[in-house]
Amino acid sequence: MTAVLRLESRKRVRGSVILLVVFALLSALYFSMFPGIQAEMDAFEEAFPEYMFDLFGIEALHTIEGFVAAELYAFFWSLLLAIYFAYVGAGLIAGDVQDRRMDLTLSNPVSRESVVLQKVAALWVPVVALNVGVPIVVYVAALAIGESFDPVALAMVHLLSIPYLLVCAGIGLVLSVFVDHVRIARGTALVLVFLLWLVDGVSRLDPDYEWIGDLAPSRYYDETAILVHEEYAFGDAGILLAAFLVLVAVSVVIFTRRDI
């Protein structure tokens, strides 16, 4: 029984392609800028107050790894892509329930558990497309401007981001089985993911409050540590993966018990 998976995968293709193109364009933009501004980065680092860098987890801007971590991964990947996954997750169930597509889907010999799991499984499309496409673009672009990029660190920054993105989708999914209106589910999911990201960044500014950010998924994915220091936090990724599975399980339990 993979009909739902096939259909859902197909529905994810367009968004994934668009995002891949956006990331390719962004990469091209930043890499073409880098040789011109590399020398000025020291001055740049001095010009801004330190908390700005702490907020985004930025360092070593004069290296290609630090620059890419700051420009591409700290914002576009950790925040905007996370919001995209939350948005998609929030649409998975609520949209079908609202438009009565779920009535027809569930008139088939397919269980509600299976519908949720197949819809979640269809996230493989953006996960694979972006985590294969974007590192290739970044790697090639680095070579093109005469820089070399550590391929292992690059692979890790993507691999370890997958549990993070899935948790964001999971937050959306829980809202999706809980809320009847897809716009409310999506809006709540993206605001929530943004707030969690913000809480993580802001709480890092003061060691006394840093623990608050432990609840935020982005606390467990540090793109700068991976790219600049080659620190691969597999344990943190494991925590994210476990959180994702819990969110999916909660969604399944809610969805199988509710009226649609």
Binding site: L7, D96, R100, R101, D103, L104, S107, N108, P109, V110
Partner: peptide, 15 residues
């Protein structure tokens, strides 16, 4: 048993 049931809803929610 739904493999042996056909359903035509009042509101047809197709993709």
């Amino acid at each position: 048993v739904k493999s042996d049931v056909g359903y035509l809803p009042d509101t047809l929610g197709f993709e």
